[in-house]
Design a protein around this nucleic acid. Structure first.
Lengths: 347, 347
DNA sequence: TTGTATGCGTTATCAA
DNA sequence: TTGATAACGCATACAA
């Protein structure tokens, strides 16, 4: 591999000049520029990224910290990641996928993170990844609210989760539903906490008693029940316990599908007997399922892009003031899985 | 940030010793080790990854080169990526997500890739990413067959795509199907080429004439038709052209869902009128759709893990001989979307 | 088992 | 506009 000295020698300039031709940090005459570029092509020279990083103290990479454990990407994560990569590449940044829990790093591999900053997805309460970032002084942005004891505030991008659930409930209540089941995300995730508050507030505002069966939480990602979350809950609550649930709010498309299967197995129909509302689902899956599923568009790709932009501000790549919190818009997309509730006596 | 000199001074040892405590490349006495570690903790010292990389010439990161353009991850990609990350982290490697096309890198950002090797997903014919890797002398492994003019051979992991389609066809033919439609991947992908050969061979072996409508290709990822590939094709071939197709082989779950919608819109039923076989689909989606979809289990996560292992061999991290090609097993998972064809006259 | 000195390939500072 | 040289923070050969 050719080095900067080789180019400098052949182009009869100093290495400082060669450096400048590539970094464009100060002007070089057209003549010299072309000579250097020509020699570089000839020697197949490209600046060494590592050496550059050592002195500039910039790696031009950001970390994307995804929930660890035996994790699984959903369509939501997908789209989100797409947004992150696209936006990062716009600023010349690469994306390092990160999932190694702090404790598990073996000593021989221990070293600083070769990233300039990080985007932390789906924080939990007392999220250890966030503590790690904080300790190592790595600038970070979260997608979702931070709830760590020692960390007062940090830039974040989020949907307005409380309002989202509130509006979903209102949407269903307006259709006559009074008895709903909310299949929330895992209880450790801060988003689940916010959503619960929204749910409870909606019920209170509409004078509906919140019963225990109404709020469920996704099992831990490691558990065997994780994959078909929604099935057992539906069978149990609607079947065995015979709670007269008429509407189910599902965390994601996978959950919704599980629910639909359970409903079929209970000899019930969607939406005639039970309405289903999906919070974050893959657009194409929503449209193509049968019946098509009414859902919330959370704009995951926009969440990703905005989180990167926020991080770029923190890193000084983007100038000017920037907000500490960015709320990404979301809106209900009506399809065919939610229907007006027909009171029993009117049949 | 504390540096190695700071630790050396406070621990009253040389920096060489401090270095060895962390890299564990040569023994250090227990006494010294503990003193160094203690001081390091005190100063919050961690070796600088960049500086280390500069001298060792190892970045401890591998690139994951995903198809670029306005790309979109499917469940298959998801699982694959999971496999890659998990396996890479096992060897202490991080994963850099890569999608920047070679030409688009602007001069100010131009530099060598800070990776030790790369995994290239879903190669196309004359894949420019592979040419780039080859030119820059970056060790790489492909997931899928390479079909580049100038590149003779390179390590790769793959399913046996020809045989897979052959077996799917045989499976359907054994059920009495003679007129199938194959919704293949994009025609530029090498996997699509291999599959076509398998399809044609199966037809020939069973004395079935291959008609034009039988093989379709997914539109380019940038096109608007990309997202509901399968719908128009089904409406067109089964509806307007009234070809008597009784079985459809779909590239992925998204495609399968589109097909199911089209079939419904044509007032036909799955599997009574048309059988559907999915090649790569998300397990949970397959199970939870209605009817559940018969599919091929390609073990995407295993593909990911094996590709990393192969790369580790190329990088010398893993010792011993290693094969140039690894074929990951796949098998048919029967569910409820394919049925025995009942000849019309027997009704 | 530990210390010393050199080099990794670049950018940045200061002169010219 | 360009050149010379000192960092950047670490690993490693060699010496002790």
């Amino acid at each position: 591999m050719a080095k900067i000295d080789d180019v400098a020698r052949l182009a009869k300039v100093s290495k400082g000049t060669v450096s400048n031709v590539f970094s464009q940090k100060r002007r070089t005459s057209k003549e010299v520029t072309e000579r250097v570029l020509s020699v570089s092509r000839q020697l197949n020279y490209v600046p060494n990224h590592i050496a550059r990083s050592l002195v500039t103290k910039k790696t031009m990479a950001i970390g994307l910290t995804i929930p660890h454990g035996n994790f699984f990407f959903s369509a939501f994560h997908n789209q989100f990641i797409n947004g992150v990569i696209l936006e990062a590449s716009y600023y010349g940044y690469r994306v390092l996928l990160d999932m190694i829990p702090a404790q598990k790093v073996r000593t021989p591999f221990l070293s600083s993170y070769p990233i300039d900053g990080a985007v932390v997805m789906s924080p939990t309460t007392e999220d250890e990844r966030i503590n790690l970032m904080h300790m190592e002084n790595i600038p970070f942005v979260t997608v979702g609210r931070v709830m760590n004891e020692n960390i007062d505030s940090s830039p974040s991008v989020d949907n307005d989760n409380q309002t989202i659930i509130y509006n979903i409930c209102k949407y269903l209540i307006d259709k006559g539903h009074q008895n709903m089941m909310f299949l929330n995300a895992n209880e450790l995730m801060t988003v689940a906490i916010d959503r619960n508050e929204g749910f409870i507030r909606a019920m209170e505002d509409h004078h509906i008693q919140v019963e225990e069966h109404m709020i469920q939480h996704k099992p831990a990602i490691l558990s065997t029940e994780y994959m078909d979350y929604g099935y057992d809950e539906t069978i149990q609550i609607l079947g065995k316990l015979n709670k007269k649930v008429t509407a189910i709010i599902a965390d994601d498309d996978r959950t919704a599908f599980s629910v639909m299967n359970a409903i079929k197995d209970l000899d019930l129909r969607v939406p005639e007997d039970v309405s289903i509302f999906v919070i974050c689902g893959d657009l194409s899956m929503m449209v193509q399922s049968n019946p098509s599923l009414t859902s919330m568009d959370l704009q995951p790709s926009e969440l990703g892009a905005q989180s990167v932009r926020l991080l770029m501000h923190k890193l000084g790549v983007l100038q000017g003031d920037f907000p500490e919190k960015i709320i990404v818009e979301s809106k209900i997309v009506e399809r065919n899985s939610c229907t007006e509730l027909v009171p029993p006596h009117s049949i």
